[in-house]
Amino acid sequence: MAVAATTKTGARPSRAGRRLAVPAWTGTVPFLAYVGVFLLWPTGIVVVDSLKNPSGAWQLSNITELANPLVRGYFIGSFKLCLLSSVAGAVLGAILAYAVASGNPDGVVRRLYLAASGVLAQFGGVTLAFAFLVLIGPVGLLFHASWFYEFPWGIGLIYTYFQIPLMVLVFLPAIDGLKIQWREASENLGASAWQYWRYVGGPLLAPAFLGATLLLFANALSAFATIAAWENQIAYVVPQQISTALSSEVGLSNVNVADLLALGMIVMVAIVMTLYVLLQRRAARWLR
């Protein structure tokens, strides 16, 4: 069994370096094998299977299925939700990250917010949906709001709730990297607070901000737990439809639907990524 064999050696890649005859890169083989089996292989399966028909023959025309209005609807839904939650999360998260960063680096506030961010960014999922249902759901403690069930507002709010902490985690190092000398130098040269952010702080943070926003977008795209626990009557986004395709027992014909939707998601990420690279190139000329 190939799978079992990989981890036997996984623990000690350093062995390879001891003998001179073995080239140094062999030390990375366990890692590469692991990633190959559990990341690259599954991704490859998705790509290949989505272009085959259920009996296993190539069928490139599958791609056109992505243009099917029903399928397109899920992608548009996903896009709306991701855009809303990643932009809102990025902006609000950046503000919070700045407030955290400008305090004492060893202070309690920073520890609290970082620990909470670590939990809430990863932990959202099912729990979070419950929490919001209790707050503004049908028997909400705070209030009952009809927009809460309107896509994408209610679910967008919950997504933003876990996007903000993720933004804090990934953006905080960038803010910490703003040197105090830059602030002082611009002040010394006559800059007001606004001018500092307009000409110095803003442009310096732009590449990191863009990168973080993209990360948030990808995060929202793959989020499934929250929306699964929020509402299971209507499918709005791609992951829900993939879930349905995977679990419905209609037979083999459906398997490729999941693959195709998955491929669509990969394409979507690729598009966003390309966009990001182009923007990044403009924003960070000075980095190279």
Partner: peptide
């Protein structure tokens, strides 16, 4: 390779992980 999983949604991974 290490950052790749950030952009391959978990749900995509699930679809491909079936056979494995």
């Amino acid at each position: 390779l290490c950052l790749l999983p950030l952009t391959i949604p978990a749900i995509v991974l699930v679809v491909g992980l079936g056979p494995i």
